[in-house]
């Protein structure tokens, strides 16, 4: 349940970006949240909606794009998308996998009014 402190960090960035761009309002925020980011999107949404009150993003809509776990096998070069967290290549059985996506917790895009 650390979604609120993640939202607090998010607002530090949002407020800085709004200032840099002399925005009057933030109307939209899009995040990319990996399956293995350890974050519950619904909780993030709730935390965002309560945190945004009386900020420059008071009317902002939060969009969360969930990113599945994506890996590349270092042995057979297969690209794998997984629902479970078993880090074994289904093609060749190797455990030498490179994690490409699915850990991220990114602020992707902000819609501003300037």
């Amino acid at each position: 349940m650390h979604e609120l402190s993640i939202v607090a960090s998010l607002f530090e960035i949002l407020e800085a970006k709004a200032r840099e761009n002399q925005a009057t309002k933030i109307v939209g925020v899009r995040l990319r949240v990996g399956k293995l980011a350890g974050v519950v999107p619904e909780f993030l949404q709730t935390a965002f909606d309560s945190y945004k009150q009386d900020t420059i993003a008071a009317e902002a809509r939060l969009e969360i794009e969930e990113v599945p776990l994506k890996m590349r096998c270092r042995k057979c070069a297969a690209e794998i998308e997984k629902e479970d967290f078993v880090l074994v290549c289904p093609s060749c059985g190797s455990t030498d996998l490179e994690l490409l996506e699915g850990m991220e917790l990114l602020l992707d895009k902000i819609d501003l009014e300037v």
Partner: peptide, 17 residues
């Protein structure tokens, strides 16, 4: 007033990292 789309692509916990 105009709208502006700002691509950020920043890690939210980047400051912690």
């Amino acid at each position: 007033m105009s709208k502006k789309e700002l691509i950020v692509r920043e890690e939210i916990l980047g400051s912690n990292k």
